[in-house]
Design a protein around this nucleic acid. Structure first.
Length: 417
RNA sequence: GCCCCCAUCGUUCAGUGGCCUAGGACACUGCCCUUUCACGGCAGGAACACGGGUUCGAAUCCCGUUGGGGGUGCCA
């Protein structure tokens, strides 16, 4: 496994961007044996380009972008490629001069793509593309051709959006005298709800985003695997080792797949609940907020089984750690609007003033009132104490609070009725 | 414009000529469980884009239509 930072474009080699790549890969459990940075290897690429130049496989061109477009429009086509204007003009090096590769006019360039099957491009549709910019920096095509050969890259697995540039690299590799080429696999794109390629601006594409949103790397990676591919037996959540045994690049679909956050969340919940508690505590602690670590450990189990993403945790604990949230009027009315509630709260308050302060004692006090009055009592108490009609099992966290705090909340709720 | 590609439930994957009255998962709906919620269990609605072929037989093969996507940079 080679990690190659393809930073032939100057602003791609910013340290923080590279660090993000390292972090994301590592977080996902992907490691590498060798690492290269193309910006360290410019000389190699320039050497290759010079070789092409001296062999007549490439030539200098001083046409501006506008010249190229203007000529293309003149020939009728709304937008076509470069027309080969400078092929035999013997342009000398200088300001605004680039080097272009002379693509063959005939024949075709082909490869056997692992996911797309045989792919063939007529060389006639390939324009003479730029291999060295006017500032002397080689383009990524040359860099890739040189590096793939030099690093003996066996497999190139990438997005379908790169299919069209593959013939260029193949032509370059052939010009470099390559006797074999890497195996290519062009994966279907992942699309958004509008069925468009995920974009950095509009969509959440950064791995780090999902980490910050409380997803487990195992869940993300497992979910991603089910996009464009699936195990024959339909068992889509399982250890990576199992997938490695049956996965084949050649089984991958060609159709683009929608990134379904709902399903990712489902996967994540499965992975979170499967965690041993101590591991859950360790992984989730950074998301838990300002909670005493021993208190958190005591409540971790019920928290774990109620969480889709780790970012759900603070909301589950808010009323234990601090004041309960203000319930919505709708929820309040629904629970506290029943005519039995005042009596329930009065009786519960009465019992809690003196009962033992343990989960079991609290439960029997609250339920005892229920039996006495012939009604359910948990919901009003829960609403009064936690500010919500859903959440953690009531009595364990409740016993963690001071008696005075609980009584205050109950009395406040009673007064608000 | 030109080049490349795609097309099974809302989403995703399975299905590679008969086993399909098309299956699983997510989502959704209902019921059960439960003195909260979630989990779990059960049930339900929901798809082979369209038109031609080929074949005894087509979701599966071929052609076309329609719809969609990607590329077309001195970005990668």
């Amino acid at each position: 496994m080679v990690l190659r930072i393809e930073d032939t474009d100057a602003d791609r080699s910013k340290p923080e961007l590279i660090a993000a790549i390292h972090d994301s890969l590592t977080w996902l459990g992907i490691d590498w044996d060798e690492e290269y940075r193309q910006s360290d290897r410019f000389d190699l690429y320039r050497g290759a380009a010079d070789g092409f130049l001296s062999q007549g496989l490439a030539y200098r061109c001083d046409c501006s972008r506008n010249d190229v477009i203007a000529r293309a429009e003149a020939t009728g086509a709304a937008e076509a490629g470069y027309d080969g204007h400078c092929r035999d003009r013997q342009v000398e090096p200088g300001e605004g001069v680039v080097v272009r590769f002379r693509t063959p006019d005939e024949g075709s360039t082909r490869w056997n793509d692992l996911v797309r099957g045989p792919v063939e491009f007529d060389n006639s549709v390939l324009e003479d593309f730029i291999i060295v910019r006017s500032n002397g920096v080689p383009m990524f095509h040359v860099a890739n051709a040189v590096d793939d050969l030099d690093m003996k890259i066996s497999h190139v697995v990438r997005g379908e959006d790169l299919v069209n540039t593959t013939p260029r690299v193949l032509l370059l590799m052939a010009a470099l005298g390559a006797t074999s080429q890497p195996v290519y696999a062009h994966l279907p794109l992942i699309v958004n709800e509008k069925r468009q390629k995920l974009s950095k601006r509009r969509d959440d594409v950064a791995v780090g985003h999902y980490r910050d949103e409380g997803f487990l790397p195992t869940a993300l990676r497992n979910y991603l695997l089910t996009l464009g591919w699936g195990p024959k037996d339909g068992q889509e959540i399982r250890p990576i080792e199992d997938f490695i045994k049956v996965f084949e690049l050649s089984d991958i679909n060609k159709a683009p797949a929608f990134f379904d956050l709902k399903k990712l969340e489902h996967f994540n919940r499965e992975y979170v609940t499967a965690l041993p508690v101590d591991q859950f505590i360790q992984l989730s602690a950074p998301f838990a907020g300002e909670v005493d670590s021993e208190l958190y450990a005591r409540l971790a189990e019920p928290v774990q089984s109620r969480v889709k993403t780790l970012t759900d945790i603070p909301a589950l604990l808010d009323w234990v750690v601090g004041d309960p949230p203000e319930p919505s009027e709708k929820d309040w009315k629904k629970v506290m609007g029943k005519e039995t509630v005042p009596a329930v709260l009065d009786a519960v308050i009465d019992r809690l003033v003196s009962c033992e302060w343990t989960p079991a004692a609290l439960e029997s006090a609250v339920f005892g009132v229920g039996e006495e009055l012939g009604t359910k009592t948990q919901l009003p108490v829960r609403m009064a104490v936690s500010g919500s009609r859903s959440g953690l099992p009531l009595f364990e966290p409740m016993a963690e609070l001071d008696r005075a705090v609980v009584l205050n909340r109950l009395r406040a709720a009673r007064a608000k009725l």
